[in-house]
């Protein structure tokens, strides 16, 4: 958008009655969706650069808040707060690595921000949960059935338009899977991520993904090398090279951070393979 406001008081907040109306407004006005706005507000404050319109999303819209089990797995409304995720019994069941004192959720922002921030916001901002969503092959539901991609879209950033509105994240039934997720931050709590690394083993195949300073991405080449036997294990030089090249290609230009990611993945792979 060409127009920007220098003061937040000048922003017009549009309050649609439904998710469909929100999408219509966004297409008409080019507005910015607002949920918890814990990521959006800091970036606007930083540049004194406010969009002319906010389109307010409402957690009361059907399906936008809460967790629900179905044959597809676990559906999580996009406006579910991060705080809810850290305490929800279904999360403890499906993804215990997120909960508990040293679970990923406690490393994600501070407690006050988690109470405002939402799952959808974290995914849109490329936050810590994107690596996990990638590695789990989670899918997102978009609002609007006129969208030919419908709700069967596998998560992919380049496919998203700014007017696309996520209503929910659907994760497969991962209760029997092994899941490891690691955040490399600058300090113990409330740190921006240098790299968040997720590794998932469904009993058959490994899936790996990262997000952080180099941007989010699924490590398809590296995991294929492992799964299809091209590399016998993560400790071989071949696999190191494949991973390093793949990370660099994704945008991870700091070799030292690639080294850390590699070490974490080797560690996670060993952990998840244990007992097999």
């Amino acid at each position: 958008m060409a127009t920007v406001m220098t003061d937040r008081a000048e922003v017009r907040v549009l309050r649609p009655d439904s998710a469909r109306e929100a999408v219509t407004l966004a297409r008409q006005h080019g507005g910015t969706y607002v949920a918890g706005a814990t990521w959006l507000q800091p970036s606007c404050e930083r540049g004194r650069n406010w969009p002319p319109f906010f389109i307010a999303l409402d957690a009361r819209w059907p399906g936008f808040r809460g967790l629900q089990e179905s044959h597809q797995g676990l559906t999580i409304g996009a406006l579910t707060t991060l705080d809810t995720l850290s305490h929800h019994p279904l999360m403890k069941e499906y993804l215990p690595c997120l909960t508990g004192r040293n679970g990923l959720m406690n490393l994600l922002a501070g407690p006050g921000v988690r109470r405002l921030g939402t799952l959808g916001g974290n995914l849109m901002a490329g936050g810590d949960l994107t690596a996990l969503a990638f590695a789990l092959d989670a899918r997102i539901q978009l609002v609007g059935d006129d969208d030919p991609r419908g709700d069967r879209l596998v998560w992919r950033y380049p496919d998203l338009k700014s007017t696309d509105l996520i209503s929910a994240l659907v994760i497969p039934d991962c209760r029997r899977w092994r899941v490891a997720v690691e955040k490399l931050g600058h300090r113990e709590r409330f740190s921006p991520t240098r790299a968040t690394i997720a590794c998932v083993y469904d009993g058959n195949r490994f899936r790996m993904a990262v997000c952080g300073e180099g941007g989010p991405g699924r490590l398809e080449i590296s995991e294929a090398a492992l799964n299809d036997g091209a590399a016998s294990s993560t400790t071989t030089a071949d696999w190191y090279q494949a991973l390093d090249a793949e990370l660099e290609g994704l945008g991870w230009h700091d070799a030292r951070l690639r080294l850390a990611i590699r070490r974490v993945l080797v560690h996670q792979h060993e952990e998840l393979s244990d007992g097999d």
Binding site: T38, Q41, P42, D83, P111, G112, R115, L116
Partner: peptide
């Protein structure tokens, strides 16, 4: 003013938020 220091924490519906 960006939710990163906690000095403005208040209770909103009983929950601490910046």
């Amino acid at each position: 003013r960006i939710g990163r220091c906690g000095a403005c924490t208040v209770l909103l519906d009983g929950e601490a938020v910046p």
